[in-house]
């Protein structure tokens, strides 16, 4: 996989490790990018690294490493269980950076998805610096909107990092314009009103949200739009790939690991799911 990063052309003016290049490469191949999420420390410190590397090998273009947090109020039961297991296992913020380092070494763009307090408490500048040293591409911040993001805007500029804010079905056009103008790397569209978790059907509002988000980006070159919350199989991945630049999958990977009778079986199941999703985004 290391060849992949070497073949990536750096977009002018964009951060060196930006996730945007992974989306561009997928687009050049005539498909959507596949983005996989997994919390650090789940099912164990080593297990998370192995699972994330497997996801890269089997076809994920971008990896989001979740920073386990005691109060994940945007997450449903599946991610809550995984995060609880990671915290009970003693995962620390320093371990999250080490996990990012190991995964980013594969060449896949690797971001951290985190609630704001752990970053705030670590110190925004220090967090940005240490994430950049670990080879991370940037942060996805589900409970930080541009209104409160000033220190992070400065730190991400200083350290050349992606900053991925979320847009939602309820976002007004005015907010879409503001949020997308401050995003870097890609825009994370939360396709359902609700917490994370696999859904049986892709919400019908999703395509409309992606369309509205693209329209809101009137300045400069538009960022890719990744769609998340709910995708669990190849069929849904293909459907989302029909209108979004990236398909984001989280809970479905975790479910495979939670349900597996052994760590090895969990990795196998993750590999099979990744392959199915990767096939889906190529239909």
């Amino acid at each position: 996989m290391s060849e992949r990063s070497e073949t990536m052309e750096r977009t002018e003016g964009a951060p060196a490790r930006t996730a945007a290049t992974a989306f561009e490469q997928a687009k050049a191949e005539g498909r959507a990018a596949l983005v996989g999420y997994l919390p650090a420390g789940f099912p164990s410190y080593e297990g998370a690294i192995t699972a994330a590397k497997t996801m890269v090998e089997a076809g994920c273009d971008v990896i989001e490493i979740g920073l386990p947090y005691t109060d994940p109020l945007m997450d449903g039961p599946t991610i809550q269980d995984a995060v609880h297991q990671a915290l009970t296992g003693g995962i620390r913020v320093a371990d999250v950076f080490r996990t990012v380092e190991a995964v980013a070494a594969t060449g896949a763009r690797t971001l951290v998805m985190t609630y704001w307090n752990p970053v705030d408490h670590y110190g925004v500048d220090a967090f940005a610096r240490d994430l950049a040293s670990a080879g991370g591409s940037g942060l996805i911040t589900p409970d930080l909107t541009p209104e409160e993001a000033e220190p992070w805007l400065a730190a991400s500029d200083a350290c050349d990092l992606d900053r991925v804010f979320l847009v939602a079905l309820s976002s007004t056009d005015e907010r879409l314009a503001k949020i997308t103008s401050l995003c870097r790397g890609f825009v994370y569209a939360a396709s359902l009103m609700g917490v994370t978790g696999a859904r049986t059907a892709v919400d019908t509002g999703a395509a409309h949200l992606v369309e509205r988000t693209r329209k809101a980006m009137t300045q400069g070159s538009p960022l890719p739009v990744g769609l998340g919350l709910g995708v669990s199989n190849g069929e849904q991945a293909a459907e989302v790939a029909g209108f979004a630049d990236g398909v984001i999958v989280g809970s479905a990977f975790i479910r495979r690991l939670l349900d597996a009778p052994s760590p090895e079986a969990g990795i196998d199941a993750v590999r099979r799911l990744t392959a199915e999703l990767a096939e889906g985004v190529r239909r």
Binding site: L73, D143, L166, V167, A168, S171, I179
Partner: peptide, 20 residues
């Protein structure tokens, strides 16, 4: 106007709740 009491308060909430 943005809900701050000095350096405290504000709005650290998911985008999905901002409209509400």
């Amino acid at each position: 106007l943005t809900g701050h009491f000095g350096r405290f308060g504000g709005r650290f909430a998911p985008e999905a709740l901002m409209a509400a």
